[in-house]
Amino acid sequence: MTVFHFFNCAILTFGPHAVYYSATPLSEYDTLGTSVKAALVYLGTALIKLVCLATFLNVSENDSFDPYQELLKALIGFIDVAGLYFALTQLTHRNISQNHKFQAVGLGWAFADSVLHRLAPLWVGARGLEFTWDYILQGLEANANLVLSISLAALGSLMWLRKNKPRTLIPIIYICAGIVATMPSITSYLRRGLGWHLPKVVGFELFTSLVMAFISWQLFATCQRPST
């Protein structure tokens, strides 16, 4: 029965990635290689991030919210953006359109994140006898993260790859990218600074991810219009 529960949570956590890959044209153009590359870049980025966190951050004894530490953490979080930049611009991809490239990169990125951060706790925890909602919430969080990653990749590809974009939209793109990139810090603040419970935080994450996805989608569509 508990293996059943684990199976459910795994579907919730990793299913959307597979569905995204198979439902969108990504599968038709066989962009798996790009996703795998992005995932590898994510692994490298995560390693660098860990080293930075270990070097610059104090281990806080209590679970309280320390603004300075959090700021530092947010700055270190921007290493993610650098990694994404590397994945989008520096890697040689097979000849696929920009449109598919950012999706493939975002997907690989999110999948690697889910595997790295959620698979082990899921394996250990969800098979236990005790029932908690945590792993279902964690799966929902993975969904939100997928949407956010793809949004960030979309915004990144707008920033770095597209040259002729409407001048008025540039600050909006940057602001949005900034917001999406600082999402981990925002959720951390909500959880520890304001003491929100997990369901509330996950709800917030889902909501924001959908809003950000909608905005970046609109931005992408607007930017694409002049070129077409």
């Binding site: 029965m1 459910n8 579907i11 299913g15 569905v19 236990g128 006898l129 005790e130 279902i136």
Partner: peptide, 20 residues
């Protein structure tokens, strides 16, 4: 342990399937 029932897990599977 507070355990969930099999019925709950089946329902969850159903919900997840339809979601996907």
């Amino acid at each position: 342990y507070q355990v969930a029932s099999v019925t709950f897990d089946l329902l969850l599977l159903l919900v997840l399937g339809s979601y996907l």
